[in-house]
Design a protein around this nucleic acid. Structure first.
Length: 1052
RNA sequence: GGGCCUGUAGCUCAGCUGGUUAGAGCGCACGCCUGAUAAGCGUGAGGUCGCGUGUUCAAGUCACGCCAGGCCCA
């Protein structure tokens, strides 16, 4: 009776995975993996899931993140931690608003207001979650365990209320202020756009380009400025120069006036015939005052406006090298003016029309005002030149009108005074890779600017500030209850259209207080996630306080300025703490051609197709072993996933299948582990693989503890090679040979117990990375034989290394042995000596006692592997090889310094006698330094026609001479090999016995078989061997060009 | 324009604090083995280490500059 369900090698990995998914679903494994762990605050391992926008479908970037967000929590869950995992959704903000605008045929805030903010917001609410089911399917198929039922959404009342609380904390700490910011602005839509939107539609356009002069106050000379936006001139408050740039004071021929202009541009601006009166730098101009072009803001002169300032953004690429500054209409202008205390003036309304005090153009569209403004400048004599200039200019991607840059009122959170503190807090965070935290994030922190948190949009958490229409007094509301109490209304939803009508009397003047119109930028919401997902502090106080900061988060590199940052700003502001302890940053997934993945280009395979074809384990292992886990870009390659299947999954499955096949033949069951010898008493090969296993366990634990996920797969690959290509291959006979005596039984029992333990431990060890295959293995090897139907590898404790099983010397000796065998194989290969042909002996030469001992101890093994009759170990290879010596730069470099070159020459000149001295433990003086054996590198070249191969201090030589005896055995092996193929070809099972009859007219072949008849019979499971025709059909096989007729019949 | 990352074989990537003849896998060519078999193993060809300058006895590795790609910011 078989104890293990046979492993089907035909079933695809993906099909197996579907079965595992069904098992997990049926037995609620994920939930139990959480709840089986102790429920107390110390034992919690807290993971924060950064919320994705739900407006699109998951792509590879999400799959990478999902893999990281699954592997790490699974690991810690097996390490006995209670790891709750909630999925999160980012539900507010522009992505969904824009999608709904499109679907509803709206365009911009004005049209949304006309349509009705309430209807619009409800449309957003109704549609933002429409892809969540598909997300759930894909993420689940990926093997990620995360709770979609108890998810959090940024539009939940509880979430939004906590966001209010967070804001109120900042408000009370006086960390919030209202300011202005220069933003891309669409006057057609009456709204500010994000920088991203502004970048999405650049067009080449012709604009007027005018050169205008400004009269200096203290001398009879002018500054020359240049602009393509004449309409901004009424708001001019300054002129910027590059402080190190070269300028000239020059007289223009045409009008005889004196101008200041950049030296490099003087010819272009003033004509080649200008007369240079003096040279100076920008710095010399700084502080000069000039007369305003227009009267509207002339009073600002008293506050320091109309002055020359230095700014880094001035160039000589175009214009005059003196830049007109309208701080309301340019970010650089704004920043430079802010530096010297000049506040912007903005005479343009939301529709792009001039307002007070620009009375001459009031009500006129700014672009249409260009012409009259230019005319007026010309009339005033200020216009020096008027050209047309073709340049690339941003357009509103929705309305197709040119964008302008314009100040908009914005609410800020103070960050600049927190830089040092945030940097200090960041020191305590473990970043993988380290450089992202130290450099990229660290640099960003040190230059952090105050954070704009408001948006003039609709679908979001409203900023909870109510302001008095009469006295401007403002209050911040921190909870739904607070609002209900003040307004007397029932508050059950905090979205703007549900609360904006709520008003109450001003504490100061009793006038009506109304909410300000802005909503939070969704980054503020996601930054509030640690508090808001738990509805802290309204609920879950103890849970939050015990679980903050989180142990782990993982997101993409693009979150450096995103989520990583907003989390830190808020937690530093509120709690003076880091929000998370460990963070793994992943890079971007590119298409195979190195380009961005693009749906329209179809330059990447559909994730579902990859999952269906290769399975999630393969994809996970591929991703985790790729540069993305080190925050570097990955060129996604389907072939790479296939390679994981080939190099990891199939060998593993084969090893598992091998075990099950023989265990079933022998009726071996897991309870027989107890009857096997103790691990320390098992044969060396068993002790070796167990040692290798525990070394792997130790390594994987170390890397996983350090969050170095990308260091897990390489040792895994090495282990699989050792397991399949050495342990199992070397052990095969132990499994199928009949145990005839007590020693035989013990050996077999050891082999089964060992391989079983290796497979089970391996399954546990790799469960976080390969959750499916390891589950199948575990179910098959452990759960099913024990009759457990709701068991799972993921409910087990993670294997800790059993240090006493690790035998470094044994591992080293086996490595030496494998090297010897490898060298011997290489020799056979290069000299065309197939392995089936036995050879007299192999010679191993080394002067290292440990190596010699290792080889001697494994002589029998080496004989079998190389098919030689004897291993000879020697310490002198003088008759086999010439040696040439080179210095060991590593050990000698420091000692020799500049003498290194001479030393190299001297060492190269050393002879065999000198080498022997070194091998004997002596030393040779070179360049005044005593060299020992470790100071030289030895290269061997074969002497004469010997067949040798060497690696390091090992030299292996094969005796290639054949005699009749060897030839006969070789021939026999060849016959056996062919007979085995016949067994295979006629479809025999590995245990089937046969009767055998052979016909050949080749005497050598017949005598070879006769000489080894018992062995041939044993090898091919023949109960009898006869010469002459037998029953049934003959199969003709070719043995080295000679024909052999085989009559093989299966015995009942 | 700024910060950071990347550039090593046809492809995907390793190369620790500078030190021998720069490695692995895939692909290609050739071969071996087979009681795990629609698997397994080996050998070989293939590289101006993006370019340049410098530091050093010694640079893929350190420094500086440049070029290309990427992410973020402006």
């Amino acid at each position: 009776m078989s104890s293990f369900r046979p492993v089907s090698l035909e079933a695809s990995l993906a099909e197996e995975e579907e079965r595992v998914l069904a098992h997990w679903a049926k037995t609620d494994t994920f939930a139990r993996s959480v709840t089986q762990r102790e429920e107390n605050v110390e034992n919690h391992y807290v993971f924060y899931d950064g919320p994705p926008f739900a407006t699109g479908l998951p792509h590879y970037g999400h799959l990478v993140a999902s893999t990281l967000k699954d592997v790490v929590p699974r690991y810690w869950a097996m390490k006995k931690k209670r790891v709750e995992r909630r999925f999160g959704w980012d539900t507010h903000g522009l992505p969904i608003e824009m999608e709904m605008e499109k679907e509803l045929g709206l365009s911009g805030p004005t049209s949304i207001r006309e349509y009705g903010v309430d209807k619009f917001n409800e449309a957003c609410r109704a549609n933002v979650l429409r892809y969540t089911e598909q997300w759930r399917r894909t993420i689940t198929r990926m093997g990620r365990w995360v709770d979609f039922d108890d998810d959090y959404k940024t539009m939940d009342l509880s979430f939004m209320e906590s966001v209010w609380w967070v804001f109120q904390q900042l408000w009370d700490k006086k960390r919030v202020y209202k300011g202005v910011r220069v933003m891309p602005f669409s006057w057609r839509l009456s709204t500010a756009l994000s920088n991203f939107e502004a970048n999405s539609d650049y067009r080449d356009v012709d604009d007027p380009a005018i050169t205008v002069r400004l009269k200096l106050d203290d001398e009879d000379a002018y500054l020359l400025i240049w602009t393509t936006t004449p309409w901004t001139l009424p708001a001019n408050l300054g002129v910027a120069v590059g402080s190190d740039m070269a300028y000239v004071k020059a007289r223009r021929k045409e009008d005889g006036a004196v101008y200041y202009v950049a030296e490099a541009l003087a010819g272009k601006v003033l004509g080649d015939d200008h007369e240079v009166l003096g040279q100076l730098t920008g710095q010399d101009l700084v502080g000069k005052r000039y007369a305003p072009l227009f009267p509207y803001y002339a009073d600002k002169k008293a506050t320091g406006a109309f002055v020359v300032m230095a700014s880094g953004h001035v160039s000589t690429e175009s214009g005059t090298g003196l830049v007109h500054m309208a701080p309301a209409f340019g970010e650089d202008d704004f920043a430079a003016c802010q530096k010297i205390g000049i506040d912007p003036v903005d005479p343009v309304d939301e529709e792009g029309r001039f307002t007070e005090p620009v009375v001459d153009y009031k009500g006129q569209n700014i672009k249409e005002a260009d012409k009259p403004i230019i005319r007026r400048l010309k009339d005033d004599g200020a216009l020096i030149r008027h050209d047309t200039y073709r340049h690339s200019y941003p357009f509103c991607w929705r309305s197709g009108t040119p964008l302008i840059y314009k100040t908009v009122p914005v609410w800020f959170v103070k960050v600049e005074d927190l830089r040092d503190r945030m940097a200090a807090i960041n020191e305590g965070i473990h970043w993988v890779p380290e450089a992202v935290g130290q450099k990229r994030f660290g640099n960003w922190l040190s230059e952090a600017r105050d954070w704009a948190i408001s948006r003039n949009r609709f679908w979001g958490t409203p900023i909870p500030v109510w302001q008095c229409a009469s006295c401007d007094h403002a209050v911040c509301i921190g909870s739904a209850a607070d609002l209900a109490q003040r307004s007397g209304a029932d508050v059950t939803d905090l979205h703007p259209h549900k609360i904006d009508h709520l008003t109450f009397a001003c504490d100061k003047c009793q006038a009506e207080m109304r909410r300000i119109p802005e909503v939070f930028d969704c980054w503020f919401e996601s930054g509030s996630m640690p508090y808001a997902q738990l509805h802290y502090p309204f609920e879950n106080k103890a849970k939050f306080e015990g679980g903050f900061p989180a142990q782990f988060i993982a997101e993409g590199l693009d979150q450096t300025r995103g989520w990583f940052y907003t989390l830190l700003v808020l937690s530093a502001s509120l709690f003076d703490k880091a929000p998370f302890e460990n963070v793994v940053v992943n890079g971007l997934v590119l298409a195979e051609d190195g380009q961005k993945m693009s749906k329209s280009k179809k330059n990447y395979p559909d994730p579902h197709k990859v999952l269906d074809e290769y399975g999630a384990d393969a994809l996970r292992a591929y991703l985790i072993n790729s540069p993305v886990v080190r925050a570097e870009p990955l060129r996604f390659s389907e072939a790479g996933v296939r390679e994981v299947v080939r190099s990891v999954l199939i060998p593993l499955k084969n090893a598992w299948s091998f075990f099950v096949q023989y265990a079933n033949v022998d009726g071996w069951s897991p309870d027989q582990v107890a009857q096997a010898p103790a691990a320390a008493d098992r044969p060396e090969l068993d002790r070796w693989i167990l040692s290798m296993l525990q070394s792997l366990v130790r390594e994987v634990n170390e890397q996983m503890d350090g969050y170095y996920l990308y260091k897990v797969i390489p040792p895994l690959l090495g282990f699989i090679d050792h397991l399949t290509n050495w342990y199992i291959r070397r052990s095969r006979r132990r499994f199928w040979r009949q145990a005839e005596d007590e020693a035989g039984r013990e050996d077999k029992s050891s082999a089964y117990a060992t391989l079983y333990e290796v497979l089970v431990t391996f399954a546990e060890l790799m469960a976080p990375v390969l959750p499916f295959l390891t589950e199948s293995m575990y179910q098959n090897l452990v759960s099913e034989p024990a009759g457990k139907t709701d068991d799972s590898v993921h409910l087990r404790d993670y294997p800790a290394p059993l240090e006493d099983r690790i035998d470094a010397a044994l591992e080293q000796n086996m490595a030496v042995t494998r090297t010897v065998v490898g060298l011997g194989r290489a020799l056979r290969q290069t000299h065309d000596l197939r392995t089936r042909q036995p050879l007299r002996h192999v010679m191993v030469v080394t002067h290292d006692d440990a190596v010699r001992a290792a080889v001697e101890a494994h002589a029998e093994l080496i004989c079998e592997e190389l098919n030689v009759r004897e291993v000879q170990v020697r310490h002198d290879d003088a008759d086999l090889a010439e040696v040439s010596l080179k210095p060991n730069y590593k050990t000698l470099g420091k000692r020799m310094g500049k003498r290194m070159k001479a030393c190299a020459a001297d060492v190269a000149g050393l002879d065999r006698a000198a080498f022997d001295t070194l091998v004997g433990g002596g030393s040779i003086e070179v360049q005044g330094e005593a060299l020992t054996l470790e100071d030289v590198i030895v290269t061997r070249t074969p002497k004469g026609d010997v067949v040798i191969e060497s690696e390091g201090e090992l030299t292996v030589a094969l005796d290639t001479r054949l005699d009749d005896d060897l030839r006969q055995e070789g021939l026999m092996r060849e016959v056996v090999s062919k007979l085995q193929r016949v067994r295979k070809d006629i479809g025999l099972d590995i245990t089937d016995r046969v009767s055998l009859a052979l016909v050949t007219d080749d005497d050598a072949m017949r005598s070879a078989v006769q000489a080894f008849e018992a062995r041939v019979a044993e090898e091919v499971l023949a109960t009898s061997i006869a010469f002459g025709a037998g029953g049934g059909d003959a199969v003709n096989v070719d043995v080295d060009g000679r024909v052999l007729q085989v009559y093989m019949e299966k015995l009942a």
